[in-house]
Simulated assay, not measured.
Amino acid sequence: MTEQLGLPKEILACLFDLDGVITKTAVVHAAAWQQTFDEFLHRRDGEGFRPFTDADYNDHVDGRPRADGVRAFLASRGIELPEGSPDDPPDSPTVQGLGNRKNNLLLEMIRSGGVEAYDGTLRYVEAVRASGLRTAVVSSSTNCRDILRAVGAESLFEVRIDGVVAAERRLPGKPKPDTFLAAARDLGADASQAAVFEDALAGMDAGRSGHFGYVVGVDRVGQGAALRAHGADIVVRDLAELGESA
């Protein structure tokens, strides 16, 4: 049955990223990060500040836990900030404060614009489940459960390893493979029996370093070559292509 899904026959479990794979929220995340960092850089450097770019998002932020993304981007600009605490207000000049500012903006954007799922992904996940394979969602987002509920997809996934669960279990986020490995274990599968579905370069790195059985890169923004370079076994524009090509 796995061959009909475009997967190797050894695969028993499918591990799906949320933003950019299941839901159309990656672009909202990118917009929230851009506004957050541009406001910060403008305050710091004035009118001559260098704006946050799509490349910055892909290279330093996409797929990572929120605070890790803040640290990685600031380090790329040679900027160091105090860590702060998780309850820092969103205008605090700290790593946690910037992260909270981004999250507030993200939730405002979601409330005003709503959330949509990729229909091709939902159909594919339903086919995966009909074939008897196990399913999990693996996301660095602390809003994962609410977003899945908003698109009516929570029941499609047996296991959820998100930012909340990762913090409870003290699992390092992507590009480390630990969250994906935890999801596979919770589903009773070895890494070699699990397929990872990701759109972020950090997710590709996690799939490669975790030695998963198959890594599917989902190219929503024209970075197919980069996804392959970071470990994708196959790159598709939509998961519907996997079933069509089988």
Rank of each mutant, 00 (worst) to 15 (best):
E83D: 11
G84V: 04
P86L: 00
P86A: 01
P86F: 02
P86I: 01
D87G: 03
D88K: 06
D88N: 07
P89D: 09
P89F: 05
P90R: 06
P90K: 07
P90V: 07
P90S: 07
D91N: 13
D91G: 12
D91L: 06
S92W: 03
P93W: 14
P93V: 09
P93Y: 07
P93I: 09
T94V: 10
V95P: 06
Q96V: 00
G97P: 01
G97N: 02
L98C: 08
L98E: 09
L98H: 08
L98M: 11
G99M: 03
G99L: 01
N100F: 04
N100G: 12
N100M: 10
R101F: 07
R101I: 06
K102S: 00
K102A: 02
K102I: 02
N103T: 15
N103V: 13
N103A: 09
N104C: 12
L105S: 06
L106F: 15
L106D: 09
L106K: 13
L107W: 07
L107P: 01
M109S: 10
M109C: 04
I110M: 14
R111N: 14
R111Q: 15
S112I: 05
G113K: 14
V115K: 04
V115D: 00
A117G: 10
Y118V: 00
Y118N: 11
D119K: 08
D119H: 08
G120K: 08
G120M: 08
G120C: 11
L122S: 04
L122R: 13
R123L: 13
V125Q: 06
V125N: 06
E126P: 09
E126G: 12
E126A: 15
A127V: 06
V128W: 07
A130M: 08
S131K: 11
G132T: 10
L133E: 11
L133G: 13
R134L: 13
T135M: 11
T135L: 13
T135I: 10
A136E: 07
A136K: 02
V137A: 10
V137Y: 09
V137C: 15
V138R: 09
V138Y: 08
V138S: 08
V138H: 09
S139F: 12
S139N: 11
S140E: 09
S141G: 01
S141T: 02
T142F: 04
N143E: 00
N143W: 00
N143F: 00
N143Q: 01
C144G: 04
R145Q: 12
R145W: 03
R145D: 10
D146L: 10
L148K: 03
R149C: 02
R149S: 07
R149A: 07
R149D: 15
V151C: 04
V151K: 05
V151E: 05
G152T: 10
A153M: 05
A153D: 05
E154D: 13
E154L: 12
E154Q: 10
E154G: 04
S155T: 13
S155A: 14
S155G: 06
S155I: 02
L156Y: 09
F157R: 08
E158K: 05
E158D: 10
V159H: 02
V159S: 01
R160A: 06
R160G: 02
R160T: 15
R160Y: 02
I161R: 01
D162I: 00
D162W: 01
D162H: 00
D162V: 00
V164Q: 02
V164D: 06
V165W: 04
V165S: 04
A166F: 06
A166H: 01
A166P: 04
A166Y: 05
E168T: 00
E168P: 01
